[in-house]
Structure formats: structure tokens, C-alpha cells
Amino acid sequence: MISTQNENIKSSIQSPQPLIRMKGVKKSFGSNHVLRGMNVELYPRENVVILGKSGSGKSVLIKCLVGLVEIDEGIVEVLGKSIPDMQQEELDAIRTEVGFLFQGSALYDSMTVRENLQFPLRRHAERMKGQDENTLIIEALKNVGLEYAIDLMPAELSGGMKRRIALARTLILQPKIILYDEPTSGLDPITANEIIQLILKIQREFDTAALIITHDMDCARVISNRMIILQDGINYAEGTYEELSHIQDPKVKAFFKEVQSR
């Protein structure tokens, strides 16, 4: 692995206890070895971007973090707890601390926007801390600038609006970590930029840490504190955008050239 990390940046962002720790993670689907020993650490208030080509296993990687995909080998710890060793109840509890923004937004299409936000709240009433449900929903929608869409159905929303509502649904349980799966894919540049700014705003206001999966270099450049290039199932290179963009390694150079040319 090529590591270019500047120690000053590292110490200013990182604390000794990572929120997420993946070590030597391997995952295969039949003869397709997707992850071959992946290592990732995410620290509080940090934005780590994982870059990789389509089909490189980026989505599998973040699904391993919430137990949606079972790993074959390695360590996956979230908030100090081992995900593969958890019972269902423990896993459900830890999942409330981890928000997940899906690539296609994954709004429940038989429910209104209000009901989409109500759904996680009602299931985890203990996290409302005595606050009024309606106030929390409106607050979450205000954070993404869509309070007027409260009674609309997902089918009535544009792609960018759906992504923002999904983000509001993710935020409503006030997670410590947010996982973004291709947050800007399929969006026009203006809407993509709005989503990027929203992600930064959320991090500032809620002090969350984020792991962002993308192949959008502009998104990666603006959002990331640190970037990991996922290639051949391992974290091939790691560092800040500036550092990685100046690496002379032919694979990294080729990767940057290919992604930027899109």
C-alpha cells in the first residue's frame, strides 16, 4: 500500500480510538474475490473518501460495516464493537448510531416524506429523548431545505430532492457516523454540488464522521480529509487529495486520469 499521509494532518484529525476499524477484511462471491485484505480506520469528525472504479467492491465494503454483507475473514469494528460477532439485537442497536445514505436514496415509496421520517423514529422512540416527533421531523427537513415537501410521495420528488430527504431520514436518529454510498451519482453538477455542501454542513453542525464511497473526483476533493484508493480488493493508496494527486505511482496516476476524464 502506498501511504502518503502527513503526520500533522493525521494527529490533528485523529484521536486514539477509531469509530470504525476494518482490518484484513476479505470477501468473495464465488470465485470473485472482491475484498482481499482491506484496512480502513475512521476517526471522529473525519471525512474519509473511498475511491474506486465501478465493481471494485466499494459498496460491498460499506455494507460489511452495517452487517448487510457478511465478511469471510478479518476484523470489522464499529464504535469498538465487532460487527460479525453481534447478536441481532446488538446489531440493531449499533445500526441506530450509523446512518446510511443509499445510492438510489431508498425512500419507502408507499409512504409520504413524513412517514419515511417517522418510520425510524417510531422504531427507536428512546432516541427522541422526550422531544416531539413532529418537531424532529420538521427540524430534519429544515436541515436539508425541504420542509415544504413533508406531505409529498417519493414519486413526486426529483432525484436531488430524494437524496436530500434520504439524508434527512438518516439524520433523524442523530447518528455518530454516516456512510454515503455514491451520494452524487446520477445527479446533475449543480444538484451534486448542493449535496456536497449539505454533507459538509451536516458534518459541521452535527459533528459526525463520514465514510464516503464515490468515483466523483470533485466530490472527493471537496469533502475528504483523507482518501483511500480501493484497487484489486485492497487499499492501494492512502493520503490527502493533494498528496495522492502528486503521486508518481503509475496505477494511481492512471486512476486519477481515468476518473477525471469522465
Binding site: K63, V66, L68, Q88, D92, A93, R95, T96, V98, F100, F102, Q103, G104, A106, L107, Y108, D109, F119, P120, R123, H124, R169, L173
Partner: peptide, 18 residues
């Protein structure tokens, strides 16, 4: 089937619902 394809079932699972 459509909920599965659009990851709504996964979204439900990661929100801590069975």
C-alpha cells in the same frame, strides 16, 4: 421485489428494523 431492487429492504434493516 421492487423494494429489494431499490434497496428499501436494506434501508429498513440498517435503520434497526427487522
Amino acid at each position: 421485489g421492487s423494494m429489494k431492487v431499490t434497496e428499501q429492504i436494506d434501508a429498513m434493516e440498517v435503520s434497526g428494523t427487522n
